[in-house]
Amino acid sequence: MENMMHDHDVMLRMRQIKKRFGPLEVLKGIDLEVCRGEVLAIIGPSGSGKSTTLRCLNRLETIDSGSIEIEGQFLVKSENGAAVYAAPAESRRLVGCMGMVFQQFNLFPHMTVLENLMEAPLQVKKMTPAEIQPAAEDLLKKVGLYEKRHAYPSRLSGGQQQRVAIARALAMKPDIMLFDEPTSALDPELTGEVLKTMRELAAEHMTMVVVTHEMAFAREAANRVIFMADGNIVEQGDPQTFFRAPKEPRTQAFLKNML
């Protein structure tokens, strides 16, 4: 019974994910579960496979072997050692349960802020502008950029662009939000506004997976921290224990450098 309850609450499950780029094995068997409402921070040195792990979740990268379940349904299954993906429409539906925020924002430069938010609901969900616009405007108010709704992305600062990117992902009403180093391309003075938006999202119990170099965010906003190195999960735990008393020498060395 307890096990069933637990299963119901698992939003993401990765099993033995292996992935190589040519001769380089970047993921060497990742096992990962994310529960509903959990904020998971993934940290680690560059090249450790943390971004690749995230990108495998929404099929921006295809895995070589292993399985991925999203809300209990298989995006990719392991059959006789090979990774077999769901059919395109099903795959698109499952990936659609997740919103993604990129390091480089990737806003659509030829559309205004509001159009950026409305595009996917219009095209993918076939909603009408009248249906989606109020919700899109509410999201812009939430990230504090309602006044900029008719501006083009090039007129915004990096921090503002990233907040629009978060709002754009939220406009599709995802169950899970994935963040790939969302503040790494920002000037230090602009990271705060983006982290604040993410903290607010976490406070609303959004399920989040955040690849980040922001140790303060990992420590304060995450429920669990994962440390990756060389394509493996080296250590994980709740932030208090993890940052106060890391067990593995690699984690200790990394944290010593970061803090």
């Binding site: 929404n58 099929r59 921006l60 698109r92 539906r93 990936v95 659609g96 997740m98 919103g99 993604m100 990129f102 480089q104 990737n106 806003l107 659509f108 595009e119 996917a120 095209q123 993918v124 990117a165 754009r168 992902a169 599709m172």
Partner: peptide
């Protein structure tokens, strides 16, 4: 940029929608 395709893909857009829009 690749990022434009990736953003469209993660928003659930099909290849045709991505190219056209």
């Amino acid at each position: 940029e690749r990022g434009q395709y990736e953003a469209a893909k993660t928003l659930g857009m099909t290849y045709t929608q991505t190219m056209r829009r």
